[in-house]
Simulated assay, not measured.
Amino acid sequence: MTLLAVERIKLFTTRSPWWSMLLALALTIGITAIIAANWGAEAPMPVLAAVFVHNLGLYVIMVMAALAVTTEYRFGTIKATFQAVPDRISPLVAKAVVVVLLAGLVGLASSFGSWALSWLLVDNTSELAIESANDWRHVAGVGLVYAAGALLALGVGALVRQTAGAVSIILVFALVLESVVGFIPNIGDDIQKWMPFTVAGKFIFGNPDPSVIPAGEGPPAIGELSPWGSFGYFAAIAVAIYVISLIVVKRRDA
């Protein structure tokens, strides 16, 4: 519990987490508000539309998670931490618990905030009610994706140790590489289906309730996994990268 308190204090006594949380909420809820305000009255707004831009907040939270590690390396405070806790694993696990829980809460705040504001702004809310299991997955599932994404970013930050490098890897991979890989002849589409952030999108958007999506429309099938299988795949990649980072941090000099 002491390590958790220490990591909580270290995280919240810097400005970057606060700005990151505010930016993540502002991007997701703000853009969703614009979408909802301009949604035509003739067509009902589905639950999916309320969380359509959740990825914007996800990338911001992943940058925040990476900074939680790289900032300590930048200013040398990680050395004092490792001197106080020589096993090195315990403080990193405590940091992961704090950052992952915070990321999950921000994800829930962004998704339910976007949904609630959409309910207030759209004229036709007949399909915006959260009634089915799919509806709950679309909205509440954002918190799980944020949490897993934060764990992945923590692992990248611990491996790279440089803020610019870690942030570049996260954003370039998510925003550029996963899209560009689809242009590779013959095999691009097959590879893209298994890219982690693409698969995470299947968890949020895949297999929507057909009652709120017109025939032939809606998100396409992604890969061969079910929505929950897709989250398991994304979470497994995040855990694997984080575990590798723990092994590397344990073996190399601080």
Rank of each mutant, 00 (worst) to 15 (best):
M1N: 13
T2E: 13
L3Y: 06
A5K: 12
V6Y: 12
E7Y: 10
R8A: 13
I9P: 03
K10H: 04
T13Y: 09
P17N: 12
M21T: 12
L23R: 02
L23Q: 03
A24L: 06
I29L: 04
G30S: 14
G30F: 14
G30Q: 15
I31G: 02
T32R: 07
A33Y: 00
A36M: 06
N38F: 11
G40L: 02
E42P: 01
V47Y: 02
A49P: 06
A50R: 04
F52E: 12
F52T: 05
H54R: 13
H54A: 14
G57R: 00
I61V: 15
I61W: 09
V63C: 12
A65P: 00
A66H: 05
A68V: 08
T70C: 04
T70R: 09
T71M: 11
I78K: 05
K79N: 08
A84E: 00
A84Y: 08
R88K: 15
R88E: 11
S90A: 15
S90T: 14
L92I: 07
V93D: 06
A94E: 00
A94V: 01
V99L: 10
V99F: 10
G104R: 11
G107Q: 11
A109K: 10
G113D: 02
A116V: 05
L117P: 04
L117Q: 04
S118P: 04
W119R: 15
L121P: 05
V122N: 06
V122L: 06
D123R: 07
T125S: 07
S126Q: 12
E127L: 00
I130M: 15
N134E: 11
V139F: 11
A140N: 09
V142G: 08
V142F: 02
G143T: 06
V145Y: 08
V145N: 04
Y146F: 15
A148Q: 00
L151W: 02
G155V: 03
V156T: 03
G157V: 03
T163I: 05
T163W: 06
G165Y: 12
A166S: 14
S168I: 11
I169V: 15
I170L: 15
L171M: 10
V172M: 14
V172F: 15
L175P: 09
L175K: 08
L177H: 09
L177S: 13
G182H: 07
G182T: 03
G182M: 04
F183P: 05
P185E: 11
N186V: 14
N186E: 13
Q192G: 06
K193E: 14
K193G: 13
W194D: 02
T198R: 15
A200K: 09
A200F: 08
A200Q: 09
G201F: 03
G201I: 00
F203D: 08
I204D: 05
F205T: 01
F205N: 05
G206N: 05
N207D: 15
A215N: 04
A215G: 03
A215K: 04
E217Y: 13
A221R: 11
I222N: 13
E224K: 11
W228G: 00
G229T: 06
Y233C: 13
F234K: 01
A236M: 13
I237G: 08
V239C: 06
Y242Q: 04
S245T: 02
S245G: 02
I247P: 10
V248P: 06
V249T: 07
R252M: 09
